[in-house]
Design a protein around this nucleic acid. Structure first.
Lengths: 109, 109
DNA sequence: GTTCCAATATAGGACGACCTATATATTTAA
DNA sequence: TTAAATATATAGGTCGTCCTATATTGGAAC
């Protein structure tokens, strides 16, 4: 297990890749690093590259090779899917975030 | 596919169950209904009951049978795992939410 | 008591998200 | 030129999240 041994938190990897690429074009290892900074654990090569391959085959991202690095960016389809994903995420988990960030009730100590 | 044909948004079901049960005790079908209201699609019986079984076996929730319905609530371990999950979610996806909810840049139309 | 429905249960299958391990290519350093 | 480091690729495996389909069980209605 990678985050918690009891409640699995896997999921949304491809979505997160789309989100990151909407900020700026990146290559694979760079994307993995950004995910690692957020999640606490950097996904391994065997995780990130198959995900990028799938996204590329689905034409949500496109790659531009220069030497040994491939810089990825979103396609129009990718931006569209990202928008849908964001709406889904906000509908599904928005209350968790708003509860945490607005009017925080701190425990006295 | 259940949400988008291209970018899979599955995941975090057990986590979402913990979150909902932290609000109030509920039985299985009720939990599925709440998830459905958020996600747009109510998970089927074959999805929700195995998830509840697993959570119970891991002692994150406990069930109280009354007739044909089982009302679930969090255990202390469940509350602890929920807290960890929330932190993970905020670290991983917090920027998506804050960008959406704070200072929205609307497109002119 | 039987019929019906609601709630739960479980088998079986597909697939994305994770891993380890191994391989290959390009670039850089020695 | 050779070695080491970096970036990518892929095989093979586990597991949670999804489904459909098929039970079972308890309560209510007749």
């Amino acid at each position: 297990m990678h985050v918690s041994s009891k409640c699995d938190m896997r999921g949304l990897l491809s979505f997160q890749v789309l989100w990151l690429l909407s900020k700026r074009p990146m290559h694979g290892d760079e994307i993995a690093g950004e995910i690692g900074r957020r999640r606490g654990e950097k996904p391994k090569a065997g995780t990130i590259y198959p995900a990028l391959k799938e996204l590329k085959e689905n034409r949500l991202i496109k790659g531009n090779r220069k030497g040994k690095t491939i810089t990825y960016s979103l396609t129009a389809d990718g931006r569209s899917e990202l928008r849908k994903g964001i709406m889904y995420l906000c509908r599904s988990f928005g209350d968790i975030f708003s509860e945490r960030y607005s009017a925080p009730k701190r425990r006295l100590r």
